[in-house]
């Protein structure tokens, strides 16, 4: 399968296979007017299979979200057909309004205005907990 290279834009690489669509929607890429390619199950030496997203335009990406969904993701910045930067998103310390607390006893279940905030409590296992009720994400 051949997908054309991009001249200026971003390539989100090493997305775990099957997570591409989730990321596409979370990042709001469906709302972009430029060309966007979502490649699923591409062969990967490292992971066997991976998803890739190519965006033919530079934009600000939510690196916290990328780091949360899969810290092994890399973002390549392309300018004039050349890779000029490679970004490795880390696990973010805090996630705000990325995921929702599912604990029916949490204060966020009755106060709709409160932001849903999760804090990284164990970097080794990638565990996030709600800052209000400590429920695991």
């Amino acid at each position: 399968m051949i997908i054309g290279t991009i001249v200026n834009g971003l390539v989100i690489d090493h997305i775990p296979a099957g997570k591409g669509m989730e990321l596409y929607l979370h990042l709001g890429l469906d709302k972009l007017s430029c060309e966007v390619a979502l490649i699923r199950n591409a062969p990967s030496d490292k992971f066997g299979k991976k998803d890739i997203i190519k965006i033919a335009e530079k934009m600000d990406l939510d690196l916290d979200l990328l780091g949360f969904i899969a810290p092994q993701i890399t973002v390549n910045v392309i300018e004039n057909g050349e890779k000029v930067e490679k970004i490795h998103p880390a696990l973010p310390e805090k996630l705000t309004n990325v995921i929702r607390c599912r604990n029916p006893r949490c204060i966020t279940s009755i106060e709709q205005e409160l932001p849903h905030v999760f804090r990284l409590t164990d970097a080794e296992s990638g565990t996030y907990r709600c800052i209000y009720c400590d429920t695991k994400a």
Binding site: R105, C106, I107, T108, I131, Y132, D134
Partner: peptide, 10 residues
Amino acid sequence: RHPKEGAPYV
């Protein structure tokens, strides 16, 4: 004292 978890933190 609040029945919902996290209320005092808020």
